[in-house]
């Protein structure tokens, strides 16, 4: 038992080391995409080392609370991850967070994690209410005209 624990500890240390190495390689900042809101923060919504290992559990817990209980106020939210972790290119265009060099994409790509959050979930933050049409302040999350469309993405129909 004690042996198993020690081994487990070594494994996660090894993983964290690998992630750290990757992040240093990919950009100047050790953990986050340069220029993102996250780069200005001292830590994520939970301690960084906790998030590095458990972000998937955090999001999974939250998804049930949100879909079934309608709870949308907590700091654990995928939309929150995206708001904070997206970077912009030189033209100020938001880069989809799952792109290979971006926050979600870079690490999942490196670790060979295949996940499908972004089959359904928007990859860029929704623009501020009022920028998009719609009485509820509904906002585009996938892409939006003139603001956050990454190059190469098709323009959505005029809204």
């Amino acid at each position: 038992m004690a042996n198993a624990l020690v081994t487990g500890g070594r494994v996660s240390l090894g993983l964290a080391g690998a992630l750290l190495a990757l992040a240093v390689q990919a950009g100047g900042s050790p953990f986050v995409t340069p220029g993102s809101q996250a780069a200005k923060e001292r830590s994520c919504v939970e301690a960084t080392d906790f998030m590095r290992r458990n972000h998937m559990e955090v999001i999974k817990h939250q998804r049930d609370a949100t879909v079934h209980g309608g709870i949308r106020s907590t700091k654990h939210s995928l939309a929150g991850c995206i708001d904070c972790h997206v970077a912009r290119d030189a033209q100020g265009q938001v880069l989809p967070v799952n792109d290979e060099q971006q926050f979600c994409g870079a690490c999942h790509d490196f670790a060979a994690v295949r996940l499908n959050c972004f089959d359904c979930h928007a990859t860029v933050p929704a623009p501020a209410p009022g920028k998009a049409a719609g009485s509820a302040g509904q906002a585009l999350g996938g892409a939006s005209p003139g603001s956050s469309l990454p190059p190469g993405h098709p323009q959505p129909a005029a809204r």
């Binding site: 309608g70 929704a126 623009p127 209410p129």
Partner: peptide, 21 residues
């Protein structure tokens, strides 16, 4: 640790987000 509160933040549709089930 920081907390980005969602009330009125972009893409949350305006209004106060629900906190209780």
């Amino acid at each position: 640790l920081h907390t980005l509160a969602h009330a009125g933040s972009p893409g949350q549709g305006g209004g106060v987000p629900r906190a209780e089930p």
